[in-house]
Amino acid sequence: MTTPTFVAVGAYSAPRGRHAAPHRYAAWKVTLYRSGHIDALIDGAPYQVGPGTILTIPPHLDHAEVAHTAYSNYYLLLDAQPDLPWPRIAADSGNERLGSALAALVNESSTLDEHSPTMVDSLVNVVDVTLRRLAAGRTPSRARTIVNAVEQLLEERYGSRCLVADLAREVGVSTSTLRAMYGTELGRSPQARLREIRLHHAVELLQTSNLTLAAVATRCGYHSASHLTRHLKQALGRTPGAVRES
């Protein structure tokens, strides 16, 4: 199995009505749609695309987009053999979501150092294996796809203000529907997941950095150091100092 090689990566967003005219690349294009709803045309074949949808486009095929809403995506260009066993369309699912690898690639490309080539190669390998697994697996439910799309958004935005209503609007469902999907798929609410994600990153920073408590709170979306302290005590029964010592 020959691993694809990196060409380029990026994040893109567009308002409603900003359509993409037919275009093509000499490389494979892997696109993960993070929010919004569009119609994609690949070599004349239509695909309805929503949050969590993955499209893989072989080299030299025309690709166009009709933007019914504002939308955003990650895109990755790779040099690879033209007969890769990747699905043309799939849903981002599972514990190792493709969105996490693409977000890491976007971040890596903006902060290059001597280790970046090795990291990029590793992340490209993750993308390749994830797509092969998706091709061999079952298609997840719509609810699971929506939840995974929101999970990706929460991981990217936990340090800022996140409203469930805004997240629901971005993925094209009502607030009550999103809460119901979270209850079914994860057994908790979106707000509870956001608290878990914030707490996880706060604990990680306390244990691996010398940032002040106030700085950790700010980075992880808490209003103040006392706000973070209260949540740590409620969730873990420990003070920030005890967490840092451990």
Results as ranks from 00 to 15, higher is better:
His60Lys: 12
His37Ile: 11
Thr5Ile: 15
Thr3Pro: 04
Ile89Thr: 02
Leu205Trp: 05
Tyr25Ile: 07
Leu153Asn: 05
Pro240Asn: 09
Ser93Met: 11
His23Asn: 10
His60Ile: 04
Arg219Ser: 07
Arg97Ala: 10
Ser176Pro: 02
Ala143Pro: 02
Thr212Met: 06
Ala149Lys: 01
Arg179Ile: 10
Ala165Tyr: 05
His115Ile: 02
Val173Arg: 13
Leu123Ser: 02
Val49Asn: 01
Thr5Ser: 15
Ala14Glu: 09
Ala67Gly: 02
Gln152Ile: 04
Leu102Gly: 00
Ala101Met: 02
Thr56Val: 14
Val120Phe: 01
His68Asp: 04
Ala103Leu: 06
Ala149Glu: 09
Asp62Pro: 00
Arg138Glu: 09
Ala235His: 14
Gly137Asn: 01
Ala165Arg: 15
Leu61Phe: 01
Ala80Glu: 00
Leu134Ala: 11
Thr2Ala: 14
Ala70Trp: 05
Asp166Val: 12
Gly99Met: 11
Leu112His: 07
Asn210Lys: 06
Pro140Gly: 08
Ser209His: 06
Asp83Thr: 13
Leu206Arg: 03
Asp113Phe: 03
Asp79Met: 08
Asp92Pro: 05
Ser110Tyr: 07
Tyr33Asn: 07
Glu155Pro: 03
Ala235Ile: 12
Thr53Pro: 01
Leu102Gln: 04
Gly241Arg: 10
Arg188Trp: 11
Ser189Gln: 11
His227Leu: 00
Arg133His: 11
Leu205Arg: 14
Glu108Ala: 14
Trp86Phe: 09
Leu167Tyr: 04
Ser100Gln: 14
His201Leu: 04
Ile146Ala: 01
Glu170Gly: 08
Gly36Asn: 09
Val171Cys: 08
Ser174Gly: 13
Leu76His: 04
Thr130Tyr: 02
Gly183Asn: 14
His223Lys: 13
Glu196Leu: 11
His227Ala: 12
His37Gly: 04
Asn73Cys: 03
Tyr158Pro: 08
Pro22Val: 15
Asp128Met: 00
Gly241Ala: 03
Gly241Asp: 07
Gly10Thr: 15
Thr3Phe: 10
Met119His: 01
Arg97Tyr: 07
Pro117His: 11
Thr175His: 09
Pro15Tyr: 05
Gly221Thr: 13
Gly221His: 13
Ala80Ser: 06
Arg244Asp: 00
Tyr25Cys: 08
Ala8Tyr: 12
Ser35Pro: 01
Leu199Tyr: 09
Asp83Met: 10
Pro51Trp: 10
Arg18Tyr: 09
Ser176Ile: 11
Thr31Pro: 00
Glu245Cys: 00
Val147Met: 10
His223Gln: 12
Leu84Gly: 01
Pro117Asn: 05
Ile38Trp: 03
Ala136Leu: 14
Leu236Pro: 03
Val147Pro: 02
